[in-house]
Simulated scan of single mutants.
Amino acid sequence: MDTRFHANLADIRRRVDDYLAELFDTTLWDDWKSADLDEFGFALLREAAIGGGKRIRPAFTQWAFLAGGGGVEDDLAIRAGAVFELLHTFALIHDDVMDEADTRRAMPTLHVSFTERHYALGLRGSAQRYGENMAILLGDYTLLVCARLAGSLPPQAQQVFYRAATRLMHGQYLDLETSAMGEWHEDVAATTAELKTASYTVEGPLLVGAGLAPNGAALEPFLRSYGRAVGQAFQLRDDLLDLFGNEAQTGKPIGGDVAQHKATRLLEIARRRVTGPDSALLGRNDADLDAVRTVLHNCGAVAELELVIERLVLDATEAVANAPMTAYGREMLIDAARFAGERKW
């Protein structure tokens, strides 16, 4: 992975941020003002959408667009990819409420900010309920903005977006259900990852980007195979970062998957391998994270997952190695697969 990949990713991030800033400061702000609402919620939502993030979703949209013969300076795929970024913002807002998360991208989550506002102003009713309700509403509003923007895409791209968004909801449903039950079938972790992350993080953006490109139609089968492999690698790396990542880099608390009994591939491997007191440790929501990390290393779960990620990255690179795409697009996609598997944040 050379410096050109990181420079390209940084350029895409800048272009997406510029587009989102313009969207919030003109169209969305005009809508907000027309209802005579205060600026507090709007400012929080704007910061949630623009203040940070890898912008990997619009990047995949752009790289598939370039692979299909699209122009580097053409903003068509950048704008389309930004719709997936807003879908991600919606998902994070609701996910933080569901997971009772206090921070996101090293900042207070929306429901926490609203709860603190309730206390500061001495408002009536439950501060926690107020905070959660306001965050849910802002998440809903963000999803409506996604629908509005997606409506300007070609019909086939709209269908891809709808399917990706729907699978995200299905994945979140499965995530909540398995977390509540505390037990799951060994295939559930993989299914949850594919539904909740891979579909709207990699595969959906790729197919939309290719659909906007002059020669993109021929790339669809190759990008589907690539997208599924990279999406899984991306989620599996997330599973490791949840326990072994640096909170200052990830921007969110460490250890949430264990505390909430999430159906992750890492924990699934460990549960198959571990018995006795160590097994009980993995089922506790107040388990010492250092002890959990030791168990995961000693039982070989971490090493096995690293091998799975390595295999998925190789599968992804092989999927596009001989695809009828531009050389530059292929190079970016191969580097992106490695980035998804190796990233530290």
Rank of each mutant, 00 (worst) to 15 (best):
4 R>F: 07
222 F>D: 12
298 N>A: 08
243 L>A: 04
119 Y>T: 04
316 A>C: 07
260 Q>Y: 12
277 P>V: 06
223 L>I: 01
269 I>Q: 15
134 M>K: 08
84 F>Q: 05
294 T>I: 02
98 M>C: 13
215 N>T: 02
259 A>W: 14
204 G>T: 04
334 I>V: 15
319 A>P: 04
153 L>I: 09
66 L>G: 01
169 M>K: 01
71 G>R: 07
246 N>K: 11
229 A>F: 05
253 P>Y: 12
97 V>K: 02
55 R>S: 14
181 M>W: 09
12 I>D: 06
118 H>Q: 00
276 G>L: 02
331 E>S: 02
181 M>I: 08
173 Y>A: 11
266 L>E: 11
334 I>N: 15
338 R>P: 10
129 R>I: 00
7 A>W: 04
54 K>R: 04
119 Y>E: 08
6 H>S: 06
237 R>N: 11
26 T>Y: 10
64 A>M: 01
129 R>K: 02
34 S>H: 14
26 T>G: 10
280 A>W: 07
97 V>P: 03
26 T>P: 12
62 Q>T: 06
331 E>D: 04
291 A>I: 01
43 A>D: 15
264 T>S: 14
339 F>Y: 15
94 H>L: 11
42 F>N: 07
238 D>V: 03
48 A>P: 01
319 A>T: 02
212 L>S: 00
228 R>D: 15
226 Y>R: 07
187 D>S: 14
287 A>N: 10
268 E>M: 14
3 T>M: 05
85 E>S: 03
49 A>C: 08
108 P>S: 08
281 L>S: 03
230 V>F: 14
29 W>S: 10
192 T>K: 14
129 R>D: 02
120 A>R: 08
251 G>M: 01
337 A>V: 01
5 F>Y: 08
288 D>I: 01
253 P>D: 14
207 L>W: 10
